[in-house]
């Protein structure tokens, strides 16, 4: 209880720049959906598992979209998403309110996604867009049967989206991550900088270079 009171007392202090503000418990409504991410996380640190489930509901789709665009594989994306929220659950006490919860959870997901890419490169597992390697003994990713509409019946839009996804996967991971965060997830530069732990200028330059490469890859779509 003392821990909770300390947290409450901390929230009543004058806000400092860069510190996430959390309302005192008395000012929060009963409905957890009205709580901010950080308030939910503090409640979760006090063993309120309902708060954790609300956070999962808020971020599962956003993170799934981010991870899938980053790794390009649905199964891997599911596993990474599971692992992300599992780590949030286990490492909940490591979260401090000096950072936004979204920054923290995106950092976890991004690190897990990069680890998966490294593991995949060590195994020689190549994505569909990178197939055709020189070594035939490589552990190629076996294509799953396509249960969707036949290619001639596919809409132009779906084909276009597939092309864009393939182009994204051809970008270097550092550029890809930055472009996805900025242009698909629509995160602010400051937040991307905090997630990647890089200066804002570096983030901007990576985004620009990623866009340049992506535009070159998708030139036929524009024309």
């Amino acid at each position: 209880m003392g821990h909770t009171e300390a947290k409450k007392g901390r929230t009543q202090e004058p806000p400092e720049p860069g510190v996430v503000q959390v309302r005192p418990a008395a000012e929060r409504s009963v409905n957890l959906d009205d709580w901010s991410d950080e308030e939910l996380m503090l409640a979760f640190q006090d063993d309120n598992d309902d708060a954790y489930l609300v956070l999962v509901g808020r971020y599962k789709d956003r993170l799934m979209n981010f991870v899938y665009r980053f790794v390009g594989d649905m199964d891997d994306a599911k596993d990474i998403l599971q692992e992300t929220f599992l780590r949030v659950y286990i490492k909940k006490d490591l979260y401090k309110t000096i950072a936004k919860f979204s920054t923290w959870v995106y950092t976890i997901a991004g690190n897990l996604a990069k680890s998966e890419l490294r593991r995949r490169s060590r195994r020689g597992k190549i994505s569909l867009t990178q197939r055709g390697g020189k070594n035939k003994d490589e552990d190629y990713q076996i294509p799953l049967p396509d249960l969707g509409p036949l290619p001639d019946r596919r809409t132009d839009a779906s084909m276009k989206y597939e092309r864009v996804q393939q182009a994204l996967l051809q970008l270097p991971p550092a550029f890809r991550e930055a472009v996805i965060m900025r242009d698909i997830q629509e995160l602010a530069y400051e937040e991307i900088s905090a997630i990647l732990d890089l200066p804002i200028g570096t983030v901007k330059s990576r985004i620009n270079r990623g866009r340049n490469q992506l535009q070159a890859l998708l030139k036929d779509i524009y024309d």
Partner: peptide, 24 residues
């Protein structure tokens, strides 16, 4: 890169699986 950004934003959302919470 306005056109590129518009194209990227138009990508469909990939939602989490329906039984994600139960599995978690």
């Amino acid at each position: 890169f306005a056109r590129l950004r518009k194209l990227l934003r138009s990508l469909p959302e990939v939602p989490a699986p329906e039984n994600f919470e139960q599995e978690l």
